[in-house]
Design a protein around this nucleic acid. Structure first.
Lengths: 159, 159
DNA sequence: TATTGTTATACTCTATAACTATA
DNA sequence: TATAGTTATAGAGTATAACAATA
């Protein structure tokens, strides 16, 4: 496959070293996130959902009557970005906005029947893929990883 | 702070539930990655480096003579995107491209003296911030998390 | 034919500022 | 005056296709 290279002034190997970067939590987190995110995106594509749309649809279904700001806060994203996600979900009739009669600034968000149907299929597919992605770990290790990630998130956010 | 709300047809709590999503490795990975990435970006800003530029500069310094394609492969990004990162680093005279005399398709990448100086400071700051972000974990837990992340990445990439 | 680097482009995700209508 | 939702826009990050030079 690879033939011997004519040697040049600088010694080179076929595979580069990233041993220094591998000491960084940020580096390892990003690499793991990338492969997991890409795989999840591929699976959700058949439902015409991105990972963000899937997450928002899931939260709306689990919290009917939630507001846009609440969702944005929970997902650590800007309200202005949440508007676009909800625009998309509402255009496709997966989520419905309706004015909150008690506070006319707010919209109460609810899933449509079709939204619930799509979510059901997407959740099953996403969950199966999630398990497949973590197949290198046994149940105990998986639970441990989840707990460590949560502690990192909470410890890092607490400034 | 929060006054009692007039009750509406749908019961609502101030904090939404994401218990279903919290079962997903992808969800937890993304949340942890977001807070870590934002903090790292903030720290690297004083060196006018993004996390990607920092990573590439670090790899060039650790592997003088590496090629663009090798770096792209290692970082799991497209060659076309690596071109733009290197354009930026070279414009700022942190990295230098020079033709490989043995294969005139390639460029050998090397850090400049200024590149090494900037990298030294950036690495120290990034490492300190990385440790701060992981301060919720002791050394043993940190090592365990790193190992679990690596196994997820490798297991997930192996299709 | 295949590979390296490149250009152009589009799409996704994130961030900021300013506006409106309500409170 | 503060908050909820919105608009517009800019900046990262990522992906795809096509091309020239070289192997």
């Amino acid at each position: 496959m690879s033939r011997p290279m004519a040697s040049s002034e600088v010694a080179r190997t076929d595979s580069l070293s990233d041993t220094q970067l591998r000491e960084f939590l940020g580096y390892r987190l990003k690499r793991a996130y990338m492969v997991v995110h890409r795989a999840a995106s591929n699976v959700l594509q058949q439902f015409e959902l991105g990972t963000r749309s899937f997450t928002v649809l899931s939260l709306v279904a689990a919290n009917p009557g939630a507001s846009l700001s609440q969702l944005a806060d929970l997902l650590l994203i800007e309200r202005s970005n949440m508007v676009l996600i909800l625009d998309d979900l509402e255009t496709r009739e997966l989520v419905k906005r309706s004015r909150d009669p008690n506070d006319r600034r707010r919209y109460l968000l609810k899933p449509t029947l079709q939204g619930l149907r799509v979510l059901e299929g997407a959740t099953a597919a996403a969950f199966e893929e999630d398990k497949r992605l973590a197949r290198a770990l046994n149940d105990e290790e998986f639970a441990l990883l989840m707990s460590l990630l949560r502690r990192v998130e909470e410890g890092a956010s607490a400034d």
